[in-house]
Each structure stands twice: as C-alpha cells, then as structure tokens.
Computed example of a mutant assay.
Amino acid sequence: MGRIGSLIVEGDCILGHEAAGVVLRCGDGVTTLRPGDRVALEPGAPCENCFLCQEGRYNLCEAVKFSGVYPDHGTLQRYKVHPAKWCHKLPANLTYSQGALLEPLSVVMHGIKSAGVSLGRGTVVCGAGPIGLIALAAARASGSHPIVITDLEPRRLAFAKDFVPTVIPYQISRDLDAQANANEIRKLFGRSGGSGDGDEDYFAPHTVLECTGVESSICTGIYTVRRGGTVMVIGVGRPIINNVPFMHLSLAEIDLKFINRYRDTWPAGMACLSGGILDLDKLVTHVFPLERAMDAMRLCSDVSQGSIKVQIVDEVDGAF
C-alpha cells in the first residue's frame, strides 16, 4: 500500500501530479481559458473556504483535492478535468515538458523562500535526485555560494557537477555516522577541526536544503549547519522519525523547518524558466509514450539505471 504520511492509497487511483497540456473544452462560466490554450496544471484544488485558504495558505487546506492522491485521480491519463483557476497559461517560449517541471520547481521555490537562501551564504543540498538537483540550481540562481551537494550514488553526484559546475559534490560514507559525515562536509566550506575559537562554525553553511526525507540525512544536515542556521526539510519520509538530535537543535538555536507542497509559485516559476534564470531541460533524461507508462515507472524506481527525470507524454494528434 502506497502512502506519504497520512495520505494513503486505499483503492484504485490514477497517479501523476506534474503535468502540462492543451485545453480541449471549457465549462460554462470559464472566461480565463479557451480551447487551444497551452497550460500547466497546479495539481491541488483547495476548498477556498477554510481559515487556511482565507489566509492565503491554501497549500495547508485539509479538504484539498490533489491530483494523484487517493481518491482524486491524477494526470497520467489522456484527458483530465481540472478547475480553470488552477490551469496556468504557458508562455509561448515554454514547452509542455518545461510546463510539467513547474510542479517540482514549485516545491523547491517554496522551500527556498521559507529557508531564506541568500546571496553569498553557503548551502548544503542533501540528495541529488530531481528535487535536490532543482534545489541546487535554484540555490545557485539565488546567489548562494559555496554550495555542496551530497548523495550516496556517485553517478548522481557526477550529474550534479555537470549540471551546476560550481557545486562541490560529497559522497556520503556508509561507514560514518551522521555527525562524522557532517564534519567532513563542513571541511569543504573552509576552516574546521575544533580549534575552539569558533571559526569552524563561522565557516559552516547557513542553510541546509534536505531533499531526501531520510532520517540519517536529516541528522547529517542538522550537524552540518552553523549555529543559528536553518535546516529546511523538503523531502518526504517515514511518518515517524525518532532519532533527531533535539538538544543539539536547541542549544544551537537551529531552525528545523518543513514545507507542504507550495502556494502561489506557478507565475514566478514560469518567469524563471521563460526568462532563462533557470534551465532544467537537462534533468529530463528519458521520455515514454503514455502506452508505456509502466515501463517509465519501473525505470524511475531503479536508481541504478541512471534516470533523473522521466516524463510520460501523450502524442495523440501530434499535440505534444
């Protein structure tokens, strides 16, 4: 049974929540779209009535109908009915592929904004999967420097170095615990080694963007960040994580923060891509037709196959 925390797949459900397409028909009263418009889908449709929606924090709405989260069918289908409000017109210079990438980009944008990544401040990105790689590119575009990215898989680290040449890759050692790996990562930012004068913490990164949700990685990020810094957990993990170093967080006044999806990010995301601030095209390593969706799923579930971002397209009538 699939799940993300309390979101459990309890029956048949079409997956998919990163999508772009063309409008075929509009319902009565729709004035913002017309057939033929190219759109990117923001996959959640919040209730718009609860106090969170009224405050503008619609990403926290508990009554949201989110594509691909049971019982609401997702976007891996030929036709999808979706509220016009959450269909964003694509600029002429963006492809459908780029439109689909707006969803993971939105996750990262929400995390980076909440974490306060800024010019000339060091960042560690934990995890060189799709979200981690987008976080790497976005942190670089935000002016963060230096940036270290971590992963267990050397091929993904090599991809990250090719994707953003200024990044410093660090392969997590399975033979070291979280604190020992953190000490090695800190050395990449400058002076370290316990001199006692506080300099080793001064050179430590201000921000950690944790993009795996794995307990050991979160703990490594906590020990890596400087005192008074921020660890932003973007990745999703187990419902309960027990071994977080609570007193280290407390004594160092480290902000351990989290996000849930995104809000008001599609316009800014489209501006980033259409304006050339970010170029994420290289992340799409494989493309499959809709009829081979299962093959695409099998490929992306096996890290050893070298995929980064796998997209599924429907080429009916040459629309894509």
Rank of each mutant, 00 (worst) to 15 (best):
V30P: 07
A160F: 03
A40C: 08
F66Q: 04
L102A: 03
V233H: 05
F189M: 05
Q311M: 15
G269W: 01
F258W: 13
P169R: 01
L76W: 05
F159N: 03
E103I: 03
D12Q: 13
F159Y: 12
F320R: 03
G36V: 12
P91I: 05
L105V: 06
A45S: 15
M232N: 12
D177I: 05
I172K: 05
S250W: 12
E153H: 10
H248T: 14
G36S: 10
T265C: 15
V39Y: 11
R34V: 13
G318I: 02
Q54T: 12
L157Y: 04
R78W: 01
P239C: 10
V69G: 02
R121C: 04
D201E: 14
D199P: 00
L256A: 07
D279Q: 08
D177R: 06
G196D: 09
H82C: 02
G56W: 06
L101E: 02
V214F: 13
V208Y: 02
M232V: 11
P289A: 08
Q98V: 02
L52V: 07
A271H: 08
D162R: 14
Q305S: 10
A84Q: 04
S6E: 14
G276D: 07
E10P: 00
Q311S: 08
V39F: 14
L7P: 00
L15K: 11
P71A: 09
T150W: 01
G213R: 06
L90Q: 05
I259W: 04
A271R: 14
P130G: 03
L176S: 06
A319F: 15
A293F: 15
I277Q: 10
L188E: 06
E10F: 02
L33T: 11
L52C: 07
C50W: 01
Y96R: 00
F163Q: 05
V233C: 13
V69I: 15
R227V: 00
C47I: 02
L152V: 09
G129Q: 01
E153R: 00
A180N: 06
G2N: 14
S274T: 12
L290P: 11
G111Y: 01
R227P: 10
F246P: 00
D151A: 13
G213E: 05
H73R: 06
L188K: 14
S250G: 10
F189V: 03
C272P: 04
R238K: 15
I131C: 01
A271M: 08
A138T: 15
V214Y: 09
Y79H: 11
E184H: 15
G235K: 04
L278M: 10
V69A: 12
